[in-house]
Design a protein around this nucleic acid. Structure first.
Lengths: 125, 125
DNA sequence: GCAATAATTTACTCATTGGTTGAATATCGT
DNA sequence: ACGATATTCAACCAATGAGTAAATTATTGC
């Protein structure tokens, strides 16, 4: 594994990571799986219990989550125990946080302008 | 518009909102559009400039962003001026923040247990 | 009124996704 | 060793997504 990557490559990697993470989070079943995993590690079978889905379907969802770096599956006997890995959320949260703050600032500025100029408050947010 | 919704319905609505927002963010083109919109409002034509895409493709992306509540399109003459609406990010950021914090706590607890020398972490809490 | 411009809509590809079933693989208990 | 259990893999299907090109709808400027 290369620790240091060239800028462009690194950027593309981060982009792809964001793709995968946001994509993984864009499914209610997957979010529910994460919720459940937040209560503690669990096997695939245990995880599929509450869903009206096939074992295989849940296994696939876990694959998506795993490829996004959000969970890890470790073989323990004939079972696979899954646990959460919050590190992968960092990029996503950073992206969201940065943008939200940035946008909020812009809107606040706009709001101030509008309020100072005309009598019509824009009602932002 | 109904201000108060029944619990289950509300929950499903939030879920769908999360679906749409995360889905919308899971595409580099759409994120780039948001980045560009963060610098100020822009027309569809202006927005599609930097991309090697059709007008129509960008229009579609904007549709996705709009349905997710992330941008608004307002007709001004024969142009549509798009601007950002960060409010829709709230749910997503809240979800992420909550889970990240929660997971971090759990992992910290696990870490402490392991460090303390207890062999079996199992069901913490 | 008419040509040019801005944007959407429609109709069509092609790839991906979420789901199924059924077979394959590996491990456990006896 | 054998049957049961846990999980994945492979093949398939229906639905969706991203993209294009071409037709359509407004609107501007002359």
């Amino acid at each position: 594994m290369n620790i240091v990557a060239e800028g462009d490559t690194l950027n593309r990697m981060v982009e792809q990571n964001l793709d995968r993470v946001f994509r993984a989070l864009a499914d209610p079943t997957r979010r529910a799986i994460l919720d459940r995993l937040a209560a503690g590690e669990a096997t695939v079978g245990h995880l599929s219990e509450p869903f009206p889905l096939t074992f295989a379907a849940v296994s696939k969802h876990l694959g998506v989550l795993e490829r996004a770096g959000l969970v890890t599956r470790e073989a323990r006997g004939r079972e696979r125990v899954c646990r959460i890995d919050p590190a992968a959320l960092d990029d996503a949260r950073a992206w969201l946080e940065f943008h939200e703050r940035f946008w909020a600032e812009r809107l606040d500025a706009l709001d101030a302008l509008v309020r100072a100029g005309s009598g019509k408050p824009g009602g932002s947010r």
